[in-house]
Amino acid sequence: IINNLKLIREKKKISQSELAALLEVSRQTINGIEKNKYNPSLQLALKIAYYLNTPLEDIFQW
């Protein structure tokens, strides 16, 4: 999986903590996703895309 979450999140000036709060997950979860240590569920990936107002395929590429 190619993961552009960190790049997109930083472009939008959103911290890991802010995104985690919006998604109701821990900051460690966001960190793990960004470091490719954790693959989000489809539901979480869709929520990330929604809150970042970015197409899912721009954030994650399988």
Score class of each variant (00 low, 15 high):
Gln43Cys: 14
Leu19Cys: 04
Leu7Asn: 13
Ile48Asp: 00
Ala49His: 03
Ala20Gln: 03
Ser26Glu: 07
Ile33Lys: 02
Ala21Tyr: 09
Gly32Asn: 15
Glu10Trp: 06
Ile2Gln: 13
Asn39Met: 15
Leu44Arg: 03
Leu23Asn: 02
Lys47Trp: 05
Tyr38His: 11
Ile48His: 00
Glu24Val: 08
Lys47Ile: 05
Leu46Gly: 05
Asn53Cys: 11
Asn39Lys: 15
Asn3Thr: 05
Arg27Thr: 15
Asn39Tyr: 15
Ile33Tyr: 06
Lys47Thr: 05
Leu46Met: 15
Glu18Asp: 11
Glu18Thr: 12
Ser15Ile: 04
Ile14Ala: 02
Gln16Val: 13
Gly32Ile: 10
Glu10Pro: 02
Tyr51Leu: 10
Lys6Pro: 04
Val25Ile: 12
Gln43Tyr: 13
Thr54His: 05
Ile33Cys: 03
Gln43Trp: 13
Leu42Val: 08
Asp58Thr: 11
Ile14Glu: 01
Ser17Asp: 14
Asn36Leu: 10
Ile30Arg: 02
Glu57Gly: 11
Asn31Arg: 13
Leu56Cys: 08
Leu7Lys: 14
Ile59Asn: 01
Phe60Asn: 00
Ala49Met: 03
Ser26Pro: 15
Lys12Gln: 14
Ser26Met: 04
Gln16Gly: 04
Tyr50His: 12
Glu18Lys: 14
Pro55Asp: 08
Leu22Arg: 09
Ala49Ile: 02
Gln28His: 14
Leu52Lys: 00
Ile14Asp: 01
Ile2Tyr: 10
Tyr38Trp: 13
Ser26Ala: 06
Ile8Met: 07
Leu19Asp: 00
Ser15Tyr: 07
Glu34Leu: 04
Trp62Phe: 13
Lys11Thr: 11
Ala49Asp: 00
Asp58Cys: 12
Pro40Ser: 03
Gly32Glu: 15
Asp58Gly: 04
Asn4Glu: 04
Arg9Glu: 02
Tyr38Pro: 03
Ile59Gln: 00
Leu44Ala: 03
Gln16Ala: 09
Gln61Cys: 11
Leu44Pro: 00
Leu44Glu: 04
Leu46Trp: 07
Ala21Arg: 15
Lys47Glu: 06
Leu52Glu: 00
Glu34Trp: 04
Glu24Leu: 11
Ala21Leu: 11
Ile59Asp: 01
Leu52Ile: 03
Leu22Cys: 10
Leu56Pro: 05
Ser17Val: 12
Lys37Thr: 14
Lys47Gln: 10
Glu34Cys: 03
Thr54Met: 07
Glu34Phe: 03
Leu44Gln: 06
Ile2Arg: 12
Pro55Ala: 07
Gln43Ala: 15
Val25Met: 05
Lys13Gly: 15
Leu46Thr: 09
Gln16Lys: 07
Ala21Asn: 12
Lys13Asp: 09
Asn31His: 13
Gln43Ser: 11
Lys11Glu: 12
Ile1Pro: 10
Lys35Glu: 15
Leu23His: 00
Lys37Arg: 13
Pro40Cys: 09
Leu44Tyr: 02
Ile30Val: 12
Gln16Ser: 06
Ile48Thr: 03
Gln28Leu: 11
Gln61His: 12
Leu23Gly: 02
Ile59Arg: 00
Ser17Leu: 12
Trp62Ile: 11
Leu22Asn: 09
Ser41Trp: 05
Tyr50Ile: 07
Gly32Ala: 15
Leu42Ile: 11
Lys6Ile: 05
Tyr50Gln: 08
Ala45Ser: 06
Asn4Gln: 07
Ala45Met: 15
Asn39Asp: 08
Glu57Tyr: 10
Asp58Glu: 14
Ile1Asn: 10
Lys6Phe: 06
Lys12Pro: 00
Glu24Met: 13
Asn36Phe: 11
Thr29Cys: 15
Ser17Asn: 13
Glu24Gly: 14
Ala21Pro: 01
Glu34Tyr: 02
Asn36His: 11
Ser26Tyr: 04
Ser41Phe: 04
Lys37Phe: 14
Tyr51Gly: 04
Lys6Tyr: 06
Glu34Val: 03
Leu44Phe: 09
Glu57Val: 08
Ser15Trp: 04
Ser41Lys: 06
Phe60Tyr: 04
Leu44Asp: 03
Tyr51Gln: 07
Asn39His: 14
Leu5Met: 12
Lys13Cys: 12
Glu18Tyr: 08
Asn53Trp: 04
Val25Gln: 03
Lys35Met: 15
Leu7Glu: 14
Ile14Leu: 13
Gln28Gly: 14
Lys47Val: 03
Gln61Leu: 08
Lys13Asn: 14
Trp62Lys: 06
Glu10Gln: 10
Ile30Glu: 03
Leu56Lys: 03
Arg27Trp: 15
Lys35Ala: 14
Asn3Cys: 08
Leu7Asp: 11
Pro40His: 03
Trp62Val: 10
Leu5Asp: 01
Ile1Met: 14
Pro40Thr: 05
Ile2Met: 12
Ile2Thr: 13
Thr54Arg: 04
Thr54Glu: 08
Glu24Cys: 15
Glu34Asn: 02
Ser17Pro: 06
Ile30Lys: 00
Asp58Leu: 12
Tyr50Asp: 07
Lys11Trp: 08
Asn53Tyr: 05
Lys6Asn: 04
Leu5Glu: 01
Glu57Leu: 08
Leu44Ile: 07
Asn4His: 11
Ala20Cys: 04
Ile48Val: 05
Ala45Cys: 11
Arg9Tyr: 03
Ser26Val: 03
Glu10Tyr: 05
Ile59Val: 06
Pro40Gly: 04
Val25Ser: 03
Phe60Met: 02
Glu57Arg: 10
Arg27Met: 13
Ile14Met: 15
Gln43Asp: 12
Tyr50Val: 08
Lys37Asp: 11
Gln16His: 04
Thr29Phe: 14
Gln43Val: 13
